[in-house]
């Protein structure tokens, strides 16, 4: 009885972690470059919409994923260009991008399909991948049977760690993050790195959005939307993980664990599922309070 429960908790935890960790890594890059992107929610939403929509048209999951990443990247680059060329405040443009994403996807869903919440029944869906031996071991079983993007997310976290701490690119990025003046005196182009960081953010949020809609073939528009606050949780995760991708992964796993816990409590107790939906947000806030009370840092690299 208890072991299948643990299996399922681990499984849900990993699944819930993926979109959050991807978005958090995306915003980490923009944070390093000094152009903090808060439009994660919007970028995930456009990706969730366009990926499932393209799959509906082409019946090809890969094309769908590329379309989602492309849409998120375009939105991200529009933020970059408006800020860079029109001297707009990044933070306000990010809010605008979030609104645009909600407005655009909801409008397109209603215009093209007649409803803001779409269920595509006949599209191919992302398949679960079972890992041969692990799928039969109790407790570890929860690690198996995830979607390709879930495994990718873990791999990307490790790759980002190596990238940030062991490559010239990472050194330059961290230099900009710590002191733009130093970067300037050494000829490290800040604009170039800001641009690249928005490409990263688009790619990662695109993947994070695709993993929301592709496995189930569903898109939810409207004010709550498919991202459902995950973009904001990603910012909280960045705040907990700071500049280390592995810490970010750990923080995202913590948020994933609270989601799993909220699912578990729904099954095992009579607590209202509605109330339990508040759990990840409350947990994130409490974790930040504890973290900040212990460390003497400012909560984010941005001044908001």
């Amino acid at each position: 009885m208890i072991i299948p429960l643990i299996d399922s908790v681990i499984y849900t935890m990993l699944a819930a972690t993926t979109p959050v960790v991807l978005a958090a890594l995306g915003v980490m890059f923009t944070n390093f470059s000094g152009m903090f992107n808060i439009a994660l929610e919007g970028m995930m939403l456009v990706s969730a919409f366009f990926s499932v929509f393209v799959v509906d048209i082409t019946s090809n999951l890969w094309l769908g994923m590329i379309a989602g990443i492309g849409a998120a990247t375009i939105l991200g680059l529009s933020i970059f260009f408006i800020c860079h060329y029109f001297h707009a405040e990044i933070f306000i443009v990010g809010m605008g991008a979030n609104l645009i994403a909600t407005g655009l996807t909801t409008f397109m869903a209603v215009q093209l399909k007649g409803s803001s919440s779409l269920i595509f029944e006949n599209v191919p869906k992302l398949r679960r991948i079972a890992i041969p031996i692990i799928e039969n071991i109790p407790i570890l079983r929860g690690l198996s049977g995830h979607y390709v993007i879930d495994y990718l997310a873990i791999a990307i976290s490790v790759i980002c760690y190596i990238l940030v701490f062991y490559t010239p690119y990472g050194y330059h990025l961290r230099t900009i993050g710590k002191d733009e003046w130093v970067a300037k005196t050494l000829g490290i182009s800040i604009t170039k790195h800001q641009f690249i960081s928005y490409l990263w953010c688009g790619f990662l949020c695109g993947l994070g959005g695709a993993v929301l809609s592709l496995p189930v073939g569903v898109f939810l528009g409207g004010p709550v939307g498919m991202a459902n606050g995950r973009g904001w949780l990603a910012i909280a995760v960045l705040c907990l993980g700071q500049e280390n991708p592995l810490n970010i992964l750990a923080a995202a796993l913590f948020i994933g664990a609270t989601s799993a816990l909220s699912d578990l409590l729904q099954v095992t107790t009579s607590l209202s599922p509605r109330l339990l939906m508040a759990l990840p947000f409350a947990a994130a806030l409490i974790a930040i309070v504890f973290y900040m009370a212990k460390e003497h840092k400012t909560s984010l690299g941005i001044k908001i």
Binding site: R274, L275, A278, L285, I288, L300
Partner: peptide
């Protein structure tokens, strides 16, 4: 008290409040 970003904390509190309020309106 702890230098926690207002933007972040107000968002998280609001996101935690939505389901809370909906719970009352449904129950």
């Amino acid at each position: 008290r702890w230098k926690i970003n207002v933007f972040l904390s107000s968002l998280l509190i609001a996101n935690a409040l939505f389901p809370f309020v909906t719970f009352f309106l449904e129950g």
